[in-house]
Amino acid sequence: MTSCHIAEEHIQKVAIFGGTHGNELTGVFLVKHWLENGAEIQRTGLEVKPFITNPRAVKKCTRYIDCDLNRIFDLENLGKKMSEDLPYEVRRAQEINHLFGPKDSEDSYDIIFDLHNTTSNMGCTLILEDSRNNFLIQMFHYIKTSLAPLPCYVYLIEHPSLKYATTRSIAKYPVGIEVGPQPQGVLRADILDQMRKMIKHALDFIHHFNEGKEFPPCAIEVYKIIEKVDYPRDENGEIAAIIHPNLQDQDWKPLHPGDPMFLTLDGKTIPLGGDCTVYPVFVNEAAYYEKKEAFAKTTKLTLNAKSIRCCLH
């Protein structure tokens, strides 16, 4: 018999989150649709729960009410004593943790798909938090293969000092899905179709896995975050240069030392320094102006996964 890495157990509980950011409308629209008619997301033997994560922000069509829901799922915020004085999103995070967690427990949901849009030209993107997770690498390989020839990129946010504390991190297997470009507060049919297909293929993978299909060893190309880059700023902290036209919409493309990065209003080009080629992502993302992030630098690498098969009882 072929030796293989056996994944822990079959997958039982899956959640699909929309509206973690209330103005990213593809996930909101799909989740609302699936709450009314969820036939397309159901798979035999699998509990799939669509869920609106930040209903107040969705109602106002804004990213958040008090603070970013997708950055506060750490033990400090989840452990705060519940009171009306807490920011709305912290209270909501505790409610979500109660419903789908608790985080880092045996009772937490197996998989959470968190649906997002970006204003950046990132196409279909899967966000991975753990480079050693054979199950998710296999799932992402399946999704990428199923979507081809449509490109699907994998963004690895594993980093020693950049801690995200994402909404989906309460699950055993957290999956971020990011599709763009799409303006905030807008629905685009092409973007919706791409996100819908990503979810379909992900659920198909889980179904095949649960039925005992063995997935042979595989490898995927990923883009691992190195650092986030702020806009150049003046002495008052105001933005002093904008994304250069040569960099705009060039997510995932190589940016070499000396290539144009920013452009000042008086026409001066600010190039990339250093001696390493990087791959920019979230270029000129609207939501990241407040976070002082013009783009993120990534490096390209390959992740390998062992063969996996479900432990059938």
Score class of each variant (00 low, 15 high):
3 S>C: 11
3 S>G: 14
6 I>L: 14
8 E>P: 15
9 E>M: 08
12 Q>I: 00
13 K>Y: 01
14 V>C: 10
15 A>V: 00
16 I>L: 09
18 G>A: 11
19 G>K: 04
20 T>D: 00
23 N>K: 05
25 L>W: 07
25 L>G: 14
25 L>Y: 08
26 T>K: 05
31 V>S: 01
32 K>H: 09
33 H>S: 10
34 W>R: 03
35 L>V: 08
35 L>W: 06
35 L>Q: 14
38 G>A: 14
40 E>D: 08
40 E>M: 02
40 E>P: 02
44 T>V: 09
44 T>N: 14
46 L>F: 13
47 E>W: 07
47 E>C: 11
49 K>Q: 12
50 P>R: 03
51 F>I: 10
55 P>S: 11
55 P>K: 11
55 P>L: 09
56 R>S: 12
57 A>T: 02
58 V>G: 05
58 V>W: 07
61 C>K: 13
62 T>M: 13
63 R>G: 10
63 R>I: 01
64 Y>R: 07
65 I>S: 07
65 I>W: 07
66 D>P: 01
68 D>H: 05
69 L>E: 06
69 L>P: 07
71 R>H: 13
71 R>T: 14
76 E>N: 12
76 E>F: 11
77 N>P: 11
77 N>C: 12
78 L>F: 11
78 L>P: 10
78 L>D: 11
79 G>R: 13
79 G>C: 14
80 K>H: 12
81 K>N: 13
82 M>W: 13
83 S>M: 13
83 S>D: 13
84 E>S: 14
85 D>W: 11
86 L>G: 12
86 L>I: 12
87 P>W: 08
88 Y>I: 07
89 E>N: 03
90 V>Y: 11
90 V>T: 11
91 R>D: 09
91 R>T: 14
92 R>D: 06
93 A>D: 06
93 A>F: 12
95 E>W: 09
95 E>V: 10
96 I>Q: 06
97 N>D: 12
97 N>H: 14
97 N>W: 09
98 H>G: 13
99 L>I: 14
100 F>M: 07
101 G>A: 08
102 P>F: 08
104 D>H: 15
106 E>W: 10
106 E>M: 13
112 I>E: 05
115 L>K: 02
121 N>M: 01
122 M>Y: 05
122 M>I: 15
122 M>N: 08
124 C>D: 05
125 T>F: 08
128 L>D: 06
132 R>C: 13
133 N>D: 11
133 N>S: 12
133 N>T: 00
134 N>Y: 10
135 F>G: 01
135 F>R: 05
136 L>V: 07
137 I>N: 06
137 I>P: 04
137 I>D: 03
138 Q>M: 00
139 M>F: 01
139 M>C: 00
140 F>Q: 04
147 L>C: 08
148 A>Y: 14
148 A>T: 08
149 P>E: 05
149 P>R: 02
151 P>R: 07
154 V>W: 05
155 Y>S: 07
156 L>R: 03
157 I>S: 15
157 I>P: 15
163 K>C: 10
163 K>R: 13
166 T>W: 10
168 R>H: 09
171 A>D: 04
173 Y>R: 08
173 Y>K: 08
174 P>H: 15
176 G>Q: 13
177 I>K: 06
178 E>Y: 15
183 P>D: 03
183 P>S: 11
183 P>H: 06
184 Q>P: 12
184 Q>W: 10
185 G>Y: 05
186 V>Q: 12
187 L>G: 00
190 D>S: 07
192 L>Q: 06
192 L>Y: 08
193 D>M: 12
193 D>K: 10
193 D>G: 10
193 D>H: 10
195 M>G: 07
197 K>M: 13
198 M>V: 14
199 I>F: 03
201 H>R: 00
201 H>G: 08
201 H>E: 06
202 A>M: 05
202 A>N: 03
203 L>F: 06
204 D>L: 04
208 H>E: 15
209 F>Y: 14
209 F>H: 00
209 F>N: 06
209 F>P: 00
210 N>T: 06
212 G>P: 02
213 K>D: 08
214 E>Q: 09
214 E>I: 13
215 F>V: 00
217 P>L: 01
218 C>R: 03
218 C>S: 00
218 C>W: 01
221 E>S: 04
221 E>I: 02
222 V>H: 05
222 V>F: 03
223 Y>V: 05
223 Y>D: 00
225 I>D: 15
225 I>T: 13
228 K>R: 13
230 D>E: 14
230 D>I: 08
232 P>A: 04
232 P>C: 04
234 D>V: 00
236 N>G: 08
239 I>H: 00
239 I>T: 07
240 A>P: 03
240 A>D: 09
240 A>K: 12
241 A>Q: 00
241 A>M: 00
244 H>R: 00
244 H>A: 07
246 N>E: 11
249 D>A: 05
249 D>R: 02
250 Q>P: 03
250 Q>K: 13
251 D>P: 02
254 P>D: 01
255 L>I: 09
256 H>C: 10
256 H>F: 08
258 G>H: 08
259 D>K: 00
261 M>G: 02
262 F>E: 02
262 F>A: 04
264 T>E: 01
264 T>D: 08
266 D>Q: 08
266 D>N: 08
267 G>W: 00
268 K>Q: 12
269 T>Q: 07
270 I>V: 10
270 I>H: 00
270 I>K: 00
272 L>T: 07
273 G>C: 09
273 G>R: 10
277 T>P: 08
278 V>T: 08
278 V>S: 01
280 P>E: 05
281 V>M: 10
281 V>W: 04
282 F>K: 14
282 F>P: 03
283 V>R: 05
283 V>C: 07
285 E>W: 02
286 A>P: 10
286 A>G: 13
286 A>S: 12
287 A>Y: 10
288 Y>W: 09
288 Y>F: 15
289 Y>G: 15
291 K>Y: 07
292 K>I: 07
292 K>E: 08
295 F>Q: 04
295 F>S: 03
297 K>C: 11
299 T>V: 15
300 K>T: 06
300 K>I: 08
300 K>D: 04
304 N>I: 09
304 N>Q: 13
305 A>N: 06
307 S>T: 09
307 S>P: 11
308 I>Q: 03
310 C>I: 09
311 C>I: 12
312 L>I: 14
312 L>W: 13
313 H>R: 15
313 H>S: 15
313 H>T: 15
